[in-house]
Simulated scan of single mutants.
Amino acid sequence: MNKLISVIIPSYNVQEYICDCIDSILSENLENLEIIVVDDGSKDRTVDIVREKYPDIKLITQKNQGPSKARKVGLEKSKGEYILFIDSDDYVEKNYIRELYEEIRKTDSDIVVSPVKYYDGVDYIEVEEKKYDNETLEAESYLLDIFKGQHITSCSNKIYKKNILMGEIFLEKVKHGEDCYTLIKALLNSKHISFIKKTSYIYRKNLNSLTNRKRIPIEDYEVVYNSLEKELKKNKELEKNIYIFKYNFLYILIRSKSIFSKRVLFDKEYRKIYFNYLEDIKNGFIDGTFGNTEKEKSMIEFRKKGVILSELFRLITRLRKREKRKYGKN
């Protein structure tokens, strides 16, 4: 007997992409599937499109409260024994859900992970992540590799047993970086994970998204980091790796999202937390001795240099501005 799969789609102002997302799911023609769209207060035609084109899909609307709240509401309304989260401006390759489902049934894992490809409207680029020889892996081992920056921290390219998503799995107070918290909480509730290799989750690099159009509030990331740090300190083995987690969390969730516009360097709130973390590097808490292989060590060393170079850039910029003011130049 096929067990029910629930696909939860949080949506917000995605009238251009919502059909691509839903159609990619429906193309699999799975009978044991429910799709739940939770609209987070869209101001465009997203809700109208779902109502008109997909009358059989469960649609829930709420005022704008962020993706975590939308995922939580969707989970509460879901009836499936297995859960997938798919972002509404993304889509999946053919047989994606089928392969995840077959793998989780075959291995009895708590989570199954798929590859991710970025799509910019022209090209598809597969995200490089650490590969494993074994079919299944202890969840803690995967979590430690996340700390080392060897995996993306999205909660979307996975299928979960519903029972590991119970409890305080969502951070409703924030709207950015919240999926990292959900993923790590799910991993802390898990024993084993496994992987599929053929089909991929397609992450659309939407240049009109909130993340790309507006300054990402650093307060959100502070909440996410502090919340995760409390969870990790409950586990002695994971607590040993707290600094490598701290550094890669900064690198992945702050620096990589803002480096193109130099927001880290020019925004007071960004600089405050950015250079607090830099102090850890200067004080020797984070250095090239972390990691089990030479590749890992060199990766961390390279990132450390990148942070320090960014600080030098900031100081040079300040000097230039001071000189311009001194000589009355615009």
Rank of each mutant, 00 (worst) to 15 (best):
P10F: 05
N13P: 05
N13T: 06
V14F: 14
Q15V: 09
E16S: 13
Y17F: 12
I18T: 07
C19R: 10
I25V: 13
N32C: 12
V37I: 15
V47F: 12
K53I: 11
L59R: 14
P67C: 07
K69C: 03
K72L: 11
L75C: 10
E76P: 08
K77I: 13
F85S: 02
V92C: 12
N95T: 02
N95F: 00
L100Q: 01
E102D: 15
D108S: 13
P115S: 11
D120L: 11
D123R: 05
Y132P: 00
D133K: 15
E140W: 03
E140F: 03
L143T: 03
T153E: 02
K162R: 14
M166R: 03
G167K: 02
I169E: 01
L171E: 04
D179S: 14
K185W: 05
K185E: 03
A186G: 04
S190V: 08
K191N: 10
I196H: 04
R204G: 08
N206D: 15
R215K: 14
P217M: 08
E222L: 11
V224W: 03
N226D: 12
K230I: 08
K233F: 10
N241Y: 01
I242Q: 04
Y247G: 03
Y247Q: 04
R255I: 10
S256G: 05
I259A: 04
R263S: 01
R263W: 07
V264W: 03
L278Y: 11
I281A: 09
K282P: 02
N283P: 01
G288L: 09
T289P: 02
E294K: 07
K297G: 00
S298F: 05
M299P: 01
I308Q: 09
L315G: 04
L315I: 00
R318E: 13
K324W: 09
K326T: 09
G328I: 14
N330A: 14
